[in-house]
C-alpha cells in the first residue's frame, strides 16, 4: 500500500515520490489529488481514511505525492502550476486512473479528461490570502510590520515563504489567478453535503470518521450507479 512512483519535473528529469495506494486491479481506479500546503497536513489522515473506505467498497485508489509536497525531496520553490498539472497527468497515466477525486485546491490540477469529484474546491487566491494573512499576523506578534500588499509584490517578484512553504514567483503569480474551471464531468461535493465543519478549518490536524464515511459513500454510490 506504501510505494513510490516516478513524477516528471519541469526540467524533464524524474523525481521518485511516495505513493499510497489500494490497488487490486479493480475496475474503478481513482486518482486522489490531495489538498495543498497547510491544508494538506490537516486533511492527510482524512484523505487516507476515505481511501480505506473506498477500498472496502471495492474501488482502487492512488494518492501520489506531487513534487515539492509531503515527503517529496524536490524543492517546492521550483514547482509551478504547470509542473503540478503535468505531475497529476502523469500520475493518472501511470496508475491508469479511470476517475479523479480532488481535495480542496487539488481541483486546480485535476486532469480535465477524467470524470470524478471535487471535494470542497478551493481557489488559489483564497488559499494564498489565508497564508499571507497568517504571515502578517505572525510578523506583527514579533513587532515587525509587513503588509499583505508588500508581501504580494515580493511574492510575484522573488517568491515568498508562507507558513514554512517556499512558493516560487511563478507559482505565486499563478495562484493569485487560479480558479477551478467549471466542469461537466467533475462533480463538486460541498462541505455541507459531507456534513459538519471542514477539517481544514481546524487549528490542529484532526480526523472525523463520519465525514470520511460520507465522502466515501458519495463516491462509492455514484460508481455503483454507473456499473
Amino acid at each position: 500500500m506504501i510505494g513510490n512512483w516516478q513524477a516528471p519535473l519541469a526540467d524533464g528529469s524524474k523525481s521518485e515520490e511516495l505513493l499510497v495506494s489500494f490497488d487490486e486491479d479493480r475496475r474503478t481506479r481513482l486518482l486522489v489529488l490531495p489538498a495543498w500546503f497547510d491544508e494538506a497536513n490537516k486533511l492527510r489522515r482524512f484523505t487516507v481514511e476515505v481511501m480505506r473506505r473506498l477500498d472496502g467498497a471495492g474501488l482502487d485508489s492512488f494518492l501520489p505525492d506531487i513534487p515539492g509536497c509531503n515527503e517529496s525531496l524536490a524543492p517546492l520553490d521550483d514547482q509551478t502550476m504547470e509542473s503540478w498539472r503535468e505531475a497529476a497527468d502523469a500520475a493518472a497515466k501511470t496508475f491508469a486512473a479511470t476517475h479523479v477525486l480532488s481535495i480542496r485546491a487539488g481541483a486546480l490540477i485535476a486532469p480535465q479528461e477524467l470524470s470524478g469529484w471535487r471535494y470542497a474546491p478551493q481557489s488559489g487566491r483564497k488559499q494564498l490570502r489565508s497564508m499571507i494573512r497568517a504571515r502578517t499576523i505572525a510578523a506583527r506578534e514579533q513587532g515587525l510590520q509587513e503588509t499583505s500588499e508588500e508581501l504580494s509584490q515580493q511574492g510575484r517578484r522573488d517568491g515568498l515563504t508562507l507558513g514554512g512553504w517556499d512558493i516560487g514567483p511563478s507559482m505565486f503569480q499563478q495562484l493569485e489567478r487560479a480558479e477551478t474551471e467549471p466542469s461537466d464531468t467533475q462533480v463538486e461535493i460541498a462541505q455541507s453535503t459531507v456534513g459538519g465543519p471542514g477539517l481544514w478549518l481546524r487549528a490542529e490536524p484532526d480526523e472525523n470518521p463520519e465525514q470520511a464515511d460520507a465522502l466515501a459513500a458519495i463516491v462509492a454510490l455514484a460508481m455503483s450507479d454507473r456499473t
Partner: peptide, 22 residues
Amino acid sequence: DSMAVAGLLTEMEDRLDIVIDD
C-alpha cells in the same frame, strides 16, 4: 496560533460577507 487565526478571519469573511484588511 497565527495560522489558525488567519483561517478564522478568512472564514469570517466568507460567512459574514465582510472584507478584513491588514
